[in-house]
Simulated scan of single mutants.
Amino acid sequence: MDQVFVNKAAASGIIAIDLLVYKPSVEVLELDIKDHLFMGMIVKEKEFKDSVSAVDFSMYQGKAVAVFCSVDAIIPPWVYMMLMEKLYPYAIYTDLNTSDIVILDLWKQNLIRADLEPYKDQKVVVRAGTDIPPALYLLATRLLKPLVKSLMYGEIGLPKIIFKN
């Protein structure tokens, strides 16, 4: 007797979106302002300018840069402007934040710019992943809710229903 196996997951009509696809591939480098402070704690204009002028900023070519200060120092706004002026010809993205937050911001930008029309009026499951920050699930839900017929979380075979239209 021939048995016919039916792939119930495929027959369900559910399609999956994997948020890892939108993870940025750009390398993120950190620039710690502390390295350019007088005695590692104070902004002295001449010393700061000399220190920054000695840096070969071409190492940031084609990279994202997370600018931060690892010490508790008062940083005047012109410091950020000077650093951006030096980074501008090289870095493709720069923000005053940690590298983890810069990666998250770039990831969000990729998802916002993504073509989500293929999910219109579909049953969609957002795949689970331990490497996906919770903020991405928030954003994905906001972007998909007006488009999809139903939204789920997990895997196609055993999804957690979030909503149905």
Results as ranks from 00 to 15, higher is better:
D2Y: 08
V4F: 10
A9H: 03
A10Q: 13
S12C: 13
G13I: 13
G13P: 07
I15K: 09
I15H: 12
A16Q: 05
I17H: 00
L19F: 00
V28Y: 04
V28D: 09
E30V: 14
D32Y: 01
D32E: 08
K34I: 05
K34P: 09
F38E: 14
F38A: 15
M39S: 13
G40Q: 09
I42T: 12
K44D: 12
K44Q: 13
K46M: 09
K46V: 08
E47A: 15
F48V: 07
S51L: 09
S51P: 10
A54H: 06
A54T: 13
V55S: 05
V55H: 01
D56N: 14
D56A: 14
F57L: 14
F57I: 12
S58L: 10
M59K: 08
Y60S: 01
Y60E: 00
K63V: 15
K63M: 12
A64R: 02
A64F: 02
V65L: 11
A66N: 11
A66M: 10
V67R: 01
V67E: 01
V67G: 04
C69W: 06
V71I: 13
V71H: 10
I74C: 04
I74D: 11
I75P: 00
P76M: 06
P76A: 06
P76W: 06
P76G: 06
P76D: 03
W78H: 13
Y80D: 07
M81N: 15
M82W: 06
L83Y: 02
L83A: 05
L83Q: 02
M84Y: 07
M84T: 09
E85W: 00
E85R: 07
L87G: 08
Y88L: 15
P89A: 11
Y90L: 15
I92G: 08
I92V: 13
Y93N: 09
T94A: 15
D95I: 07
D95W: 04
D95S: 14
N97D: 15
T98R: 07
S99Q: 14
S99I: 05
V102E: 04
L104M: 02
D105K: 10
L106F: 03
L106V: 05
W107Y: 05
K108L: 00
K108H: 03
Q109T: 09
N110A: 14
N110W: 04
L111V: 02
L111Y: 00
I112S: 11
D115E: 13
P118W: 05
Y119R: 07
K120D: 06
D121K: 04
V126C: 02
P134K: 00
P134R: 00
A135G: 07
Y137N: 01
Y137H: 01
L139K: 01
A140P: 01
A140M: 05
T141L: 04
L143E: 05
L144D: 04
L144V: 05
K145Q: 10
K145P: 03
K145V: 06
K145C: 03
P146Y: 05
L147Q: 04
V148A: 09
V148E: 02
K149E: 14
K149D: 11
K149R: 08
Y153W: 02
G154S: 06
E155M: 06
E155I: 08
P159D: 02
I161V: 10
I161R: 05
I162Q: 06
F163V: 06
N165W: 01
N165F: 03
